[in-house]
Structure formats: C-alpha cells, structure tokens
Design a protein around this nucleic acid. Structure first.
Lengths: 218, 218
DNA sequence: CGAGCCCTACCAAACGATTGTCTGGGCGGG
DNA sequence: CCCGCCCAGACAATCGTTTGGTAGGGCTCG
C-alpha cells in the first residue's frame, strides 16, 4: 500500500535523499546536538525542532535514531581515516612523517570538532552491527606502522612498542576534543606542533651528554 | 507524614546509609553498569535487578538517578585526585617525579577501571550544579605545576607550555580507559613505564650529538 | 498548452512501550 | 513499639516509531 521510500536501499548508502542538500543539513544538525548533549540524551524532537519539522517527519530521511547516529559517525570516521592515511603517505623522513601526522591529525580534530566529538564519544552507543562496520582500530594500526617504520632510523628508540606508542599518541591527540575551544589561547597549529615535538622527541634516543654551561647540581 | 530519610542531608555526605555495606554495594553495581552501557542508557531497573530489589526500592538509598551518578563520580574523582596529589608530593627530582606521577596515574586508572570510565566518560552528564562541585581542571593544574617545576631543571625544554604539556600527558594517560583490558598483553606497569618514558623524555632537550657508529645517511 | 499524475516533503495525530518517581503499607529485628 | 528496608502498584511524562493524508512542483502525454 504505502510506498514511501521505494528503493530497496542500495547497500551501505545513506537512507535516502532526492538530491542531498537537506540531508547534509540534517546530518550537521544531528551531529551538533549529539556532540552537545550526547546521543542518548538527544531527542528526535530536539533535532526536528532545529530542522524545522515535526519529529515524525524525520522518518522521511532516516529509518531509526540508531541509523542517524551511524550516518553521522560514518562520515567522520571515513574522512578522518582518509586524512590520517594521506598524512602517513607523505614523502618524508619517517621521523618527520610522524611529526606531520600528529600535527595534521590534531588540525583535523580541531577543524572537525563537532563530528570528531560524536565519533570519539558516542562510538560505543552504536549497535553491534554498525560498530562492526567501522573498524576503529584502523587508526591505531596506521600510527603503529608509522612508529615501526621510524624504528629503522637509528635515532629512534629500538625498544618502543609500536602499538603502545601509537595508543599514547592517539590518546594525547584525541583527548583534544575534550578541552579545545576555538576561542582558546592556543591555535590548532600551536597545539599540533607542540604535541608533535613532545611525542616524537619522546621516541628518540637521548644521546647522553652533560648539559653544557651548568655543573651538575643536586 | 512520610518520614523516609529523616536527616536533612549533612551537606555533601552520601544520601543515606544506616551503616554503609549495602550502600557501597549499590555504588559498585551502579558504577559497573554505567561503565558498560553509559549513564543515559542505564535503567534504574538494570541496577535494581542486580541489586536484588524492585526499582522503586532504590529510592530508599538515592534521591534521584542524577544523584546516583554524582555519588559514583564523586568518589572516584576524590580518590583519583588524592592519588595524583600524593604522587606529585613525592620527594624526588622534579623530572623523576613526573615519571612517577605518570606511571602512578596509569596504575590508578587501570586499577579502578570501572570508576574511572564513569568519571571520564559520563562527567558531562552531571547536572550543572553537580559538575560545579567537582572541578576536574584540578587534575590538569597538578600536572601543569609539575611541568613548570621541572623546567627549573636545565635538562627540560624551557619553552614547554606547562598547560599544553599537562593536557597531552593526561590525554595519553586517560585514554587508557578506552582500550585497556586486564587480560591484555601489556601489564599496567609496562604501560605506565612506557608512557612515562615517552612523555618525560619528550620534555627533555635533545643534546644534539651525532648518532655514534653510523655515518649520516640519506 | 493544459489536464492528469506522480513523487517529494511534510503534517497531524496517535501508539505502545519505557522510564523515573511517588505513595502507602508490611515485616522483622532491636 | 519503632524503624530500617523493602514490596506492590501506580503515576505522569516522554520517547521512538507508525499511519494515513495532503500540498505542490514538475513531468508526461494527448
């Protein structure tokens, strides 16, 4: 009888959109509210209000609230991972590449603060099926490989655990979504550079030489 | 008429407990379920089931679900901050103290995984009033002060931003709750030590000396 | 060119289920 | 007899979701 949304859903494609526009707007609004209040505390009513529509009308665009979260997370997941991989493919010395990756990842985070917040904070609110389609460990793998590559360089500590190091790097960088505000005193560039210096220098061997100009104290 | 919970609530003390025991059990159960499903996705029914009681009966112990979350978070907040401050007060070289703090903080996290998860993940689900009573920035301040102290040592980079560095340290450490599992391959001690070495070494000046035994390549 | 039609985008209203919370009472031990 | 602890049951509110309908723009086709 009713033939709403006739097309049988082309696999993993977004639910529906005659020609995007409004669909992107919906994703943006949902992401913003999810980021502010959390997925579970967000009502379809909240979203519909800002979208300028009755809450029931949202079902013209989505199949469920679950799926709406998935669509939001999916887009950020893909873009973020692509960004990371592009950075990791830069034609640089492995050590400098790590620096660029950290800096670039922080820049991406701050530049996509809303989406990243939803990705990082609401990831485990996804249904098991949805979560399985977004292997978030890929992020870790990319960085771990980079660390392992860098260990070919004799300046790099040979006893680093690439996985553990990658988790530390991603932890420090991802944590930025918890405190960064665009009107803060530090620019994304300063943050990225500081983090890159701190973390990459931490991976390098300390060539044990006395500090010049100061006799040992204490 | 009804005189349930007669005492007018002694300020910040937990809601009620004739003599703890069962109250602690309730906190533990709530923390565990909050950590697993998230605060908003957790039902009082879930908690009551595990507590062996009808959901209405929980109101003998709590005044609201909000407050239950607060009590859970408060206990972890206090204990965690006390732990951090104790570590920071160790009688050590400032640089070694930083190492000890990072290691000790990671150990605390892994040792109180459930509570820490709730604290770090559900903190902004607290009501504004509750949140105001737990100034979480204290954590950051403790570490930032430590970094600033360490900068008296000439081995430490003088241009470090203590606040930014503290945020990186806490980010890396706190992120551990996202991936650590007690049955993983790395022990809390290994993780803490690795993080301390990575982060503290990153704060130290690299005494620019050529790598011994290898001529410059590339 | 105009009549008819379809399809998108939405409305209006209701649904069943769930949730946090409240009321009043009962039981058992000190 | 009192009081801590819990039960039984209900409450209103809210939520995600469903159903059937409709305005209107654009397309087709005579």
């Amino acid at each position: 009888m009713v033939n709403r949304r006739r097309a049988p859903r082309t696999g993993t494609a977004p639910p529906f959109r005659s020609d995007d526009g409004r669909w992107q707007e919906l994703l943006d609004i949902a992401a913003r509210i999810f980021a502010r209040k959390g997925y579970r505390s967000t009502t379809l009513q909240d979203i519909a209000d800002e979208f300028g529509v009755l809450k029931g009308s949202l079902y013209h665009y989505i199949r469920s609230k679950d799926e709406l979260l998935f669509e939001v997370v999916r887009s950020v997941y893909g873009a973020g991972l692509a960004n990371l991989r592009a950075l990791a493919a830069a034609d640089l010395d492995p050590v400098d590449r790590l620096r660029a990756v950290i800096r670039g990842h922080v820049l991406y985070l701050t530049d996509n603060l809303v989406g990243t917040t939803v990705l990082l904070h609401e990831f485990d609110q996804l249904s098991d099926e949805h979560r399985a389609r977004l292997p978030i460990r890929e992020y870790q793998a990319v960085v771990a490989d980079l660390v392992a590559d860098a260990q070919a360089d004799p300046r790099v500590k040979p006893d680093l655990d690439p996985r553990l190091t990658a988790l530390a790097v991603l932890g420090a960088a991802n944590w930025v979504y918890r405190w960064y505000r665009p009107d803060g005193k530090r620019s994304p560039d300063e943050i990225g550079a500081a983090y890159a210096d701190l973390l990459v220098d931490g991976m390098l061997i300390r060539t044990g030489a006395a500090v010049p100009g100061e006799p040992a104290e204490r």
